[in-house]
């Protein structure tokens, strides 16, 4: 029996501008299937820019560098093709689309991702199971997408979409922000259910909170558009203890000493 294929997401020297303003100034990161990477950083450091640039938001312009999934260059592709290649972004602020029900939207998305029309009964069965797993009421399927949803409900909906679309790599953009502990646990349960050799994830977070429930393999700290520190779980704890100011000062000292980070 052949060994299960392990996917790789490579981010190489990524430079991104937003409205001609440089935000990411050379990001290098490799995520393999089965790994959980955490990206931490203060406000304005470029976390959300990285997530939108990876997903292909047209306003986030890649000036230099590349994004590769199993060697395939995704850099010039629109968002839908990146999604079909296996990338998923859980939005920090999911948009409400009144007029489109959750079930219809998800069915269209699942059909697009899988490249075939899924059987309607099978689809609804799977949807019900995954909603139950995330402790969501069946009634959600008939509601308009994110319309009138609470912050916690929106994040569950993002998690539900991830479970239905089964991406190879998921970027969770501050999925923990604005969540109460119960909702946070449910969302993390969803992420943990995906863990395995064919799924890698980048958990973007401002705080440490989410990492209490999702054990990261690697922790990266981003400051001013660059990853300035990488380490293991203990790095996250150190930041929690000492604050981002500590990182800034460290980076400043190194710059003064001419150390390349």
């Amino acid at each position: 029996m052949a060994a299960e294929h392990i996917s790789t997401l490579e981010i190489e020297d990524l430079h991104v501008t937003v409205n001609d303003r440089p935000v990411l100034k050379g990001i290098d990161l490799v995520i393999r299937g089965g790994e959980v990477h955490s990206l931490m950083g203060p406000n304005g450091s470029g976390k959300t820019t990285l997530s939108f640039a990876l997903m292909g938001h047209p306003r986030y312009k890649i000036e230099k560098g590349a994004i590769r999934l199993d060697g395939r260059d995704l850099t010039g592709l629109p968002a839908d093709e990146r999604a079909r290649a296996g990338l998923f972004l859980a939005f920090q602020y999911p948009l409400a689309i009144p007029g489109v029900t959750v079930a219809n939207f998800l069915r269209q998305a699942v059909n697009s991702i899988r490249g075939e029309k899924v059987n309607v009964l099978d689809f609804h069965k799977e949807l019900r199971e995954k909603m139950a797993f995330l402790e969501m009421n069946d009634a959600f399927a008939k509601r308009y997408l994110n319309d009138g949803f609470s912050g916690g409900e929106k994040k569950r909906m993002e998690t539900l979409q991830m479970l239905m679309l089964k991406p190879r790599f998921a970027i969770l953009d501050e999925t923990d922000s604005g969540l109460d502990v119960d909702a946070l646990k449910v969302v993390c349960r969803g992420v943990n259910a995906m863990r395995g050799p064919s799924f890698g994830t980048l958990v973007i977070t401002h705080y440490n909170r989410m990492l209490d429930y999702i054990e990261p393999d690697h922790v990266h700290v981003i400051v001013d558009g660059r990853i300035v520190r990488s380490g293991d779980r203990s790095l996250a704890e150190e930041i929690e203890e000492k604050g981002y100011q500590w990182v800034r000062e460290l980076v400043g000292q190194e710059a003064a000493q001419g150390v390349v980070s």
Binding site: F88, P98, Q108, I113
Partner: peptide, 27 residues
């Protein structure tokens, strides 16, 4: 932004626009 949200779920741009216009009228 809504177009991008739908596209990030694998839905092609033309389909996303069509879905959004229908959704706008539906209520």
């Amino acid at each position: 932004e809504e177009v991008f949200y739908l596209m990030s779920r694998g839905i092609a741009e033309a389909d996303a626009r069509s879905l959004l216009v229908s959704a706008f009228i539906q209520p």
